[in-house]
Design a protein around this nucleic acid. Sequence first.
DNA 1: GATACCGTTTTGGGATACCGAGCTGGTGTC
DNA 2: GACACCAGCTCGGTATCCCAAAACGGTATC
Lengths: 221, 221
Amino acid sequence: MSQMQNVEKQLREMILGLEIGPGERLTERWIESRFGASRTPVRAALLRLETEGLVCRDGRGWTVSPINLAELEQIAVYREAVEVAAVKLTCALADRSAVDVIEAMLDSCDAGTPREEWHRVGMDFHIELARLSGNEFLFRAIRDAMTRLSRARWLEVRDEAALGRAWAEHHAILAAVRAGDADEAARLLSTHIVGSRDRLVTSLHNDRRGLRARGFAVVAA
Amino acid sequence: MSQMQNVEKQLREMILGLEIGPGERLTERWIESRFGASRTPVRAALLRLETEGLVCRDGRGWTVSPINLAELEQIAVYREAVEVAAVKLTCALADRSAVDVIEAMLDSCDAGTPREEWHRVGMDFHIELARLSGNEFLFRAIRDAMTRLSRARWLEVRDEAALGRAWAEHHAILAAVRAGDADEAARLLSTHIVGSRDRLVTSLHNDRRGLRARGFAVVAA
DNA sequence: GATACCGTTTTGGGATACCGAGCTGGTGTC
DNA sequence: GACACCAGCTCGGTATCCCAAAACGGTATC
């Protein structure tokens, strides 16, 4: 693997894993020494992460993108449009057996599963569901949107009940897709996304002082 | 303006203006000498253009992305989802007077307007309409999609009648938005996008030999 | 005449040196 | 004590150099 991909991957993981907090300043030289690469691959990695929205320019320097509540709300609207379109396409497919793989993915999470895994599977559900549509642009749009949402979802305070509800909604969506009921799948998915957004934004809004106390920049809606 | 932005802008214009043909090989050293910049900003510009889909990696090198008919069809589906969502949002706005600006933009084209201008306004119609939604993600999605479509739309053989029909559809969409009729606007926009895609793909498919003879790589659907 | 082999050249990937702008901290003046 | 100013440092932007791998071309052999 090239140095650029290496730096990009590791830096992305550090940002998504909140090892570097939202709003934190980054210098190319720090990344250079941190990952043992020279500035050329570091700069390339930063440029790519910038297009993913994980880092942004701060005047002349680089900053880990803050958590932006207004952005989260806009992404939800975007997701709703794109995911609903994707799931409708999928419902129109002759062979929808691939939903079984996604269902198995959901079922792989149980009481003993670590929180990281729940988080990852919760995102992959939407990404893989979008992939089934066969439309590369819808897929990429959702994958990128989920990447942007990743840190916020990780910070969200989710109780057991909320997680259970999300999983039930995921299962219901898959059932509708399996039945080929596009309207029902779209309705369920739409409701799920809006509900998730409300819980997410509410949770982060309530927690914003605590988050800021942890050094995380949170921009209000 | 920095060298990187300079190279990025000029190279984008050369690619979109077909001064460098789809499928053509690019070397960093050629770009370097062509624009009088060193390889660092050249590489940065290539990385950005790669995310726009205008250039792609070809093994170890760079290639101007070919015209891909399958991609054009997928983009149309993506556009339909995103643009319809955007226009529905716009219809729900209290103040929709900004449609007048877009209408004026359309009306600025007449018989004496050069083809480049028609082409640009035809794209900007969709981009500016999306911007009205106020959703940054919907806007960027459509702007980027139109960028990817730009070269194909330029190559399309469009007769006077087709242009007139497109303009009439644009006006009809604006009228529906002005009236706040979201369903009608969505229906008109959807029809417009599907119709445009059919004409575009058909035109390029019929012309593919001529295009290849001009040195343009065209990948079949 | 075709093909296999080897040296040369080209190319992208990476490392590093240099520059100028901007920030910082310390000092001197009022 | 406050503020203005300046030196030094830091940082991104750029240019350039090196390297290994791949592409190219020529030659020798069959």
